[in-house]
């Protein structure tokens, strides 16, 4: 069978159509790229048109063979695995050729990269369930994240259940998309640029309280930065309240208020209180 490079529109359905067309044309795929990553090559290539009915047929077949794989593919499509489409394509080919027997073997050379990437996605999403920080502005909760994988579809059900009666959004800086939720409806939309508004007094006050709590809860005699970094890698610190510099804790919307009420004079609010355990480094990496 001839070897071929396929291009598709970047959607999950488009990817399924690549599989459909590779079978229809009796071709073996050596690479699958998105249209926007197109580079002229010497290899024979083909641009695939997305056809919803073809995509549905492929997906129905995969679900019939193994519902587990269908789920795995949907998740893997969100990961940051390099050339994920090719790994996923190989998994489907093996599934259709051999049946689902090999899926129990986590170390299978075709399954392993896909399963591993999905594990990475789910682990990152699990961490972010805790590490997302919301700020309240005019009754709307907003948060920003910088994940490696596209975690928003995975996080959606968690946050929608938890903040059922709230309005909130989470902006994904890496993939430039945002999850919006209000009145029981959630959507994920691409969003090119987003800047969080500065906090008002109430918001700044809760940030100060949280920062103080975080700094106080650590036991100085047990100081163990390596353990903290293992559990909470530094790449998450960027968007977390605990690790922001002083300006993050100042209310800015009303210039009349110099210091938020409730902050006693003499205590530099966001800084480290003397003698209360090691504080987080001032600069976030």
């Amino acid at each position: 069978m001839p070897e071929m490079v396929y291009y598709y529109d970047g959607s999950f359905e488009g990817f399924l159509c690549c599989i459909f067309d590779s079978y229809a044309n009796k071709e073996v795929l050596t690479a699958i790229y998105r249209d926007e990553d197109f580079v002229p090559t010497l290899f024979a290539s083909r641009a695939i048109q997305t056809d919803q009915s073809h995509a549905k047929r492929v997906f129905r077949k995969i679900v019939k063979c193994s519902p587990y794989t269908a789920n795995l593919l949907q998740k893997c499509f969100l990961t940051c695995l390099p050339e994920k489409e090719l790994s996923m394509y190989r998994l489907v080919v093996k599934l259709l050729r051999e049946g689902p027997g090999f899926l129990g073997n986590f170390s299978d050379p075709v399954l392993h990269p896909v399963a591993k990437a999905v594990q990475h996605l789910l682990a990152e999403a699990h961490l972010l369930k805790g590490f997302v920080r919301f700020s309240e502005l005019d009754g709307v909760l907003g948060g920003e994240i910088e994940p490696k994988n596209r975690v928003l579809p995975v996080l959606r059900s968690h946050f929608c259940a938890r903040y059922q009666n709230e309005k909130f959004f989470i902006y994904d800086r890496t993939h430039k998309e945002a999850l919006f939720y209000a009145n029981g409806k959630a959507v994920i939309r691409p969003l090119d640029d987003f800047q969080m508004a500065p906090p008002d007094e109430t918001e700044a006050n809760y940030r100060i309280l949280w920062k103080r709590f975080y700094d106080t809860i650590a036991i100085r005699e047990r100081y163990n930065p390596k353990c903290r970094m293992t559990n909470m890698p530094k790449r998450y610190w960027n968007t977390m309240t605990e690790f922001q510099d002083a300006s993050y804790f100042k209310a800015q919307s009303s210039p009349a208020a110099v210091s938020a009420p409730g902050v006693p004079a003499g205590i530099s609010a966001p800084g480290k209180p003397p003698g209360h355990g090691p504080s987080a480094p001032e600069s976030a990496l």
């Binding site: 805790g130 975080y214 650590a218 163990n224 559990n231 909470m232 977390m240 355990g277």
Partner: peptide, 18 residues
């Protein structure tokens, strides 16, 4: 109902979960 293992929201400077 976050997950079976609970959910850590931060880790303090001594490495313990918050």
């Amino acid at each position: 109902s976050s997950s079976v293992a609970g959910c850590c929201h931060s880790f303090s400077a001594d490495g313990r979960c918050v």
